[in-house]
Each structure stands twice: as C-alpha cells, then as structure tokens.
C-alpha cells in the first residue's frame, strides 16, 4: 500500500557515481542561478540541460512523468498568467525556472540513495551534536521510517472502525482514536527503548559516574592487598594541594622532601645487609 522507495533506482550513470554533496551543491547553485538570471535564452538553455541530465539518470518512467506533469501544468498556468499581462519574457523565465529546478531535483533524487542522503544530512547537523548526538539522530531516523507504516495502519484501522459504526462522516471518530493510539504506541516504544538502554547516551554520562566510582573504590579492596590503599588514598590529596601552592612553597617542599629522602633511605640501606 505504502512504498517508501521514492524514485531512486540503483544504477551506474555519471549522476549515480557523483558524491551526494556535489549533487546538493549543484542543486543549490542552480537554484540561485535560476533566481538571478532572467534572460530567456539562458533560461531555456538551463532548462534543456537539466532535462537532459534527468534523462541521463534513467529514472523510472511512470513516477517521473507523474512528477513532471504537475510542474509542467503549473508552469503552463504561470505562463498564461504572465502572457495575459503581456510580459512574455517573464513568462518564459518563470516557466524555465520551474521546470529546470524540478528536473534537476528529480535527477538528484533518482540517483542518490536514501542512506547516502541521510548521511549527508547527519553530517550537516554536526554542529548540533551538543544538543543531539549523531547516534540519537540515527536512532530517530530509523524509528521514523519504521513508524510511518505503523501510523498509516493506525489511521486506516480507525477509519475502518468508524465506518463500521456508521460514523464515516465524523472526523472526530477517526482522528481522536488514531491520535491517542499513536501516542500510546510512542510511549510503549519509549519504554522499550528505555528498557534496552538505547539512546540514553547523554543521560548515562551524567548519572552513571557516581555508582561507578563506588564500584571502583570497593573492587580493589576485595581484590588487591591492603598495600594499594596507601598510594590511592594519598594521590588525590597531594596533587590538588601541590598545584595551588606558589613556586616558592613548592621549592621549599621539594627541598624538605629531598632532605627527608637523604635521611630516610639510609636506615633501610644499613639494615638490609645486616638482615
């Protein structure tokens, strides 16, 4: 019933082999060029080039004709409008713009797979990674694609149920059940995600550390001999204090430690040969 394939067909034409960002850039550049250029001859030339490019990607015939027919119809209406005003240059320019951008966009769509385009969009959303980590975007996109047929199924079922009750004309009888069932579906999905720990990267970053520190503190106590406790207990107290002191104080402390080190190792050295 519902296809999410679009008009993309795999192939090996030059447009298929071009990278997605290049095709995007081409589309954006061409749109700006169409807006800026209002010379009818150039406009017709660009239109012809775009239509040829569309033909070169070998798109599926039926969907392409359907997509272009609407645009051509709109272009004809616009042309008639402008011709009635007697402005034939503007008529040609506007019609050319409409058709060329539509053809180029269809060419891009028919030669770029959805995963490539989504990858490009995720890359473009990189500056948002403080708000939305890329993994979350990936999860949301795949969940959206999955929930489109689900939502369509819910709407269809609500419509069938309303018709069975003889409430076919009542929009409320269709829309309220479908919307509330959609929310229920979303909440169940959220619980399922939460139970599996999916898409909770950000949350875990701020909540997990405390128990983990406790685990790390308790685990060495069980595993390692008590000798390890001494350095692990001392290091946190020493380092922050050392960084805060002035240079002179640190030098004094170093000298003091050096003196102690000179005095201290001697007894064990003397003891060792005797023992």
């Amino acid at each position: 019933m519902i296809t999410l394939l679009g008009i993309y067909r795999p192939g090996r034409t030059p447009m298929h082999l071009a990278p997605a960002w290049f095709k995007m850039l081409l589309l954006v550049g061409m749109s700006i060029a169409c807006l800026v250029i209002s010379d009818p001859v150039t406009s017709v030339g660009i239109t012809a080039a775009c239509v040829l490019l569309l033909a070169s990607t070998q798109p599926p015939l039926k969907a392409t004709v359907k997509g272009m027919a609407v645009i051509v119809l709109i272009a004809c209406l616009t042309t008639v409008f402008q011709l009635l005003r007697g402005d034939y240059v503007r008529a040609l320019d506007l019609a050319g713009d409409l058709i060329s951008i539509a053809a180029l966009a269809l060419a891009v769509s028919s030669s770029t797979s959805m995963s490539d385009m989504l990858e490009l969009i995720t890359t473009l959303a990189r500056p948002l990674r403080w708000i939305l980590p890329p993994e979350t975007i990936g999860v949301m996109v795949s969940l959206t694609l999955r929930s489109i047929p689900e939502a369509a199924r819910i709407i269809t079922e609500a419509r069938v149920a309303a018709r069975a009750r003889g409430l076919d004309r009542d929009m409320r009888a269709v829309l309220i059940p479908s919307a509330s069932r959609t929310v229920g579906f979303a909440l169940q999905l959220g619980q399922a995600l939460h139970a599996r720990g999916i898409a909770e990267h950000g949350r875990s970053k701020y909540q997990v550390p405390e128990p983990r520190e406790q685990e790390e503190a308790s685990a060495p106590l069980l595993a390692a001999p008590p000798v390890r406790e001494v350095p692990s207990g001392e290091t946190p107290t020493v380092t922050p204090a050392g960084t805060r002191r002035s240079r002179r104080e640190r030098r004094e402390q170093r000298e003091r430690e050096a003196q102690q080190a000179q005095e201290a190792p001697q007894p064990p050295l003397e003891d060792d040969p005797t023992a």
Partner: peptide, 21 residues
C-alpha cells in the same frame, strides 16, 4: 541532551511518522 530521554526520542520519531503518514 541529558534531558532527552528515550521516551522523548520515541515520541519525536513517532510523531514525525504521523506527520508523514
């Protein structure tokens, strides 16, 4: 994004699907 729970993610995705459907 620490406030962005799994429930929010599911709601966002399903409502995007609802708009599409």
């Amino acid at each position: 994004h620490r406030g962005f729970t799994a429930q929010s993610i599911a709601l966002v995705a399903v409502f995007a699907g609802l708009i599409a459907a």
